[in-house]
Design a protein around this nucleic acid. Structure first.
Lengths: 210, 210
DNA sequence: GTCTATATAGGGATAGAC
DNA sequence: GTCTATCCCTATATAGAC
């Protein structure tokens, strides 16, 4: 059995928002693509913003499951690679949110609040992990350095896709670019690492250089 | 004598774009605010995009004058503080560009090209300065670390305003927030510095903590 | 649930008088 | 250079039949 219309609307909207940018996709475009009438679309959703909010809710649920600390033990570098990978994949899946983040959050109070919450949790989570790395003696950093670095990590994660889109103008190579974003974040903490790990990251640089 | 209409249009447009975001300001809004007719506005500019492009040209000229290396001598940390200050001030003056950067550059080829050029110059300039600091033995970093850090510096500069707008929802405190952005960039290079300078930056953290 | 038809509003842009 | 008037188009959204 084919998926329910409501879900199809959300799926197609997500795909079109991601491809063209949310401001450039109208409810009529969505209806056209689905080969349903605009009226039908408005039977399922109050308005376009309602679609956006539902997609955002999907995103929030997924990203919340990614932002978690390894309990009961100290973190290691592999944990960070993994978590960055999961986070970037999820953000890529909902990249329309990040493409027009400021406009989206400034015009919609609900989105602003929820996104603010996600950012706050993310920074706290990164801070906790960095503290764990210090405790495990994998890295050395002061309290101020940890706090500043945690903020910088989240900022780079948040805007890596936008940054890349802005320089490149390349048509969606996707996963390759994500890899470079992850690497950039790792290089943020590289100078705090013990010599062995720091050197290891430096040799990896060749794989990611543009 | 009052400024020419053409210049007044650009000035008011810049102010309104910065305040409300370019997508949320129409040509009619601009004409209203200036108390001129829409027809008059279109006598001076072909279309709205033409206004945006002219404002961008103003920005490009200003920022180009900021992105310069200190010739004939090695750089020091004070050079970086100063240059960051000048760059952030200029970006703040044209913050509408950064608010909707992806949408703006993806829909306008000219803007995309010019902004790409600015980014490229900026990354090269930061790279040169970091190399200078290494040569002056103020910091220690590998080639790969310098390249990655230069990119991260520019990314943070580019999106600091957006990041701040996204978390805060605070109504334009302006200069205060810029200061924190500059600090965040400095903390990016802190771990590469000699102990004395690194410690100095760490003690400054208290002035910038949110 | 889905369609057709339509209302409403607003933005971008132009013609032609002054 | 500036204004009035207006056109075109598109986007959002609704009403009411099926």
């Amino acid at each position: 059995m084919a998926p329910k219309t409501r879900e199809r609307i959300l799926d197609i909207s997500l795909a079109m928002f991601n491809e063209r940018g949310e401001p450039n996709v109208t409810t009529n475009h969505i209806a056209d693509e689905l080969e349903i009438s605009p009226g039908n679309l408005y039977y399922h959703f109050r308005n376009k913003e309602d679609i956006v909010e539902n997609l955002f809710a999907r995103y929030e649920e997924k990203i919340d499951r990614v932002i978690v600390s390894p309990d009961e033990r100290l973190p290691n570098l592999e944990d960070i690679w993994l978590q960055l990978h999961l986070a970037f994949e999820t953000m890529w899946e909902f990249r329309f949110i990040y493409r027009d983040l400021v406009d989206l959050t400034s015009r919609n109070r609900k989105l602003r609040m929820h996104f603010g919450r996600i950012l706050k949790r993310a920074v706290e989570n990164v801070t906790a992990i960095l503290k764990g790395l210090v405790e495990a003696e994998i890295m050395r950093a002061s309290r101020a350095e940890i706090e500043a670095t945690a903020t910088n990590v989240i900022l780079i994660c948040t805007f890596w896709l936008s940054f890349n889109a802005t320089r490149g103008a390349h048509a969606e190579k996707g996963s390759e670019d994500l890899g470079q974003g992850i690497f950039q974040v790792m290089m943020l903490i590289a100078p705090f690492l013990r010599d062995a790990e720091r050197l290891h990251l430096n040799t990896l640089a060749n794989n990611y250089r543009k």
